[in-house]
């Protein structure tokens, strides 16, 4: 219990740090923020009024207190472009992204598991060598280029899949997001294989494996009943990393396939200099990553009491 409390304390500090970083992010805008908000042709009175209404005339620490207070009450800012709260925008754009993320995990995890097991069953064997080389090679493919080429081949040339949009019904979503999900999955599978394979091989050298072998267990039994269950925890711990990877990947893929999700929202906000949307999304992505890692840590502790948080 004490360990859990310590972990929660650590979480609070990281969340506070995230607040500071996202707060400073908007203050890194070159030039006078009030002028940026007002636009190029605003007169001095307007700029002064904006400075007052946004509290930009107050000292930095006071602005931060206001910002943190707003966050606590669930207000993460207002979009200049859409004239709507950022939370409302996120609520509108989040569904395609969530769908895509789930889709990618469904497409990427089964082959990654199978290949990692095939690879780790006989390290140094032919299958392992090939999977290793393909894994390293896969990381060198630019995901946006892969997306464009696949949309040209499967979408335009063969006409099997739509090349943009999100669709209306569940089946429509599956159809529209197949190519985006596949592009992301192809890029993610190598990362997964490498980590899983390393975890499996590390467990294969553990003392309890030697003990099982000394008791006369067969190699097949050792692999499936001793090594594999013990490799579950390191795999679970990967989840935070995977989410961080996925968020980065979906931003690019959503842009390529014009999926109306959070990634497209982020890119459009960046290009339109809608800074509070950028700030809000960065905050949300970071909190998501931290939250997933936290839950995974708690789960690990639940599954394996030895796990140190």
């Amino acid at each position: 219990m004490q360990i859990v409390l310590k972990r929660i304390l650590q979480l609070v500090f990281v969340l506070l740090g995230i607040c500071v970083v996202t707060f400073l992010l908007v203050h890194m805008v070159p030039g006078d923020p009030a002028r940026v908000i007002a636009g190029d042709r605003a007169n001095p009175e307007t700029i002064e009024a904006i400075r007052k209404s946004f509290g930009l005339d107050q000292p930095l620490w006071q602005q931060f207190v206001t910002y943190a207070g707003n966050l606590l009450s669930g207000d993460i800012g207002q979009s200049m472009r859409y004239k709507r709260p950022v939370t409302a925008l996120i609520g509108q754009f989040i569904w395609p992204t969530l769908f895509l993320t789930g889709y990618v995990i469904c497409l990427a995890v089964p082959p990654a598991l199978a290949l990692a097991i095939a690879s780790a069953r006989k390290p140094g064997g032919l299958a392992d060598q090939i999977i290793r080389i393909v894994g390293i090679a896969g990381m060198a493919i630019p995901v946006f280029w892969l997306g464009i080429m696949m949309s040209r081949f499967f979408g335009v040339a063969l006409g099997w899949f739509p090349v943009s949009g999100y669709g209306k019904t569940f089946v429509d979503h599956l159809h529209h997001l197949f190519l985006p999900a596949l592009s992301t999955a192809i890029w993610m599978v190598p990362v997964l294989i490498q980590s899983l394979r390393a975890a499996l091989i590390e467990k294969a050298g553990a003392d309890f494996v030697t003990a099982a072998r000394a008791q006369g267990a067969g190699e097949r039994e050792i692999f499936w009943r001793t090594i594999l269950p013990n490799a579950v925890l390191p795999t679970l711990n990967l989840f935070g990393v995977i989410i961080a990877f996925l968020i980065g990947g979906t931003i690019i893929v959503e842009t390529v396939y014009a999926v109306p999700g959070l990634g497209s929202l982020m890119i459009n906000a960046l290009l339109a200099r809608d800074y509070h949307v950028v700030q809000g999304l960065t905050l949300m992505f970071a909190v998501t990553t931290v939250g997933v890692t936290f839950v995974v840590d708690l789960l690990s502790a639940l599954i394996d009491p030895r796990a140190r948080l």
Binding site: V14, G17, I18, V21, I243, A244, F245, I247, G248, G249, I251, M266, L270, L281, T282, F285, A286, T289, V290
Partner: peptide, 9 residues
Amino acid sequence: AFPFFVLVL
């Protein structure tokens, strides 16, 4: 805590 790509972006 930040996804690398998002923070750089």
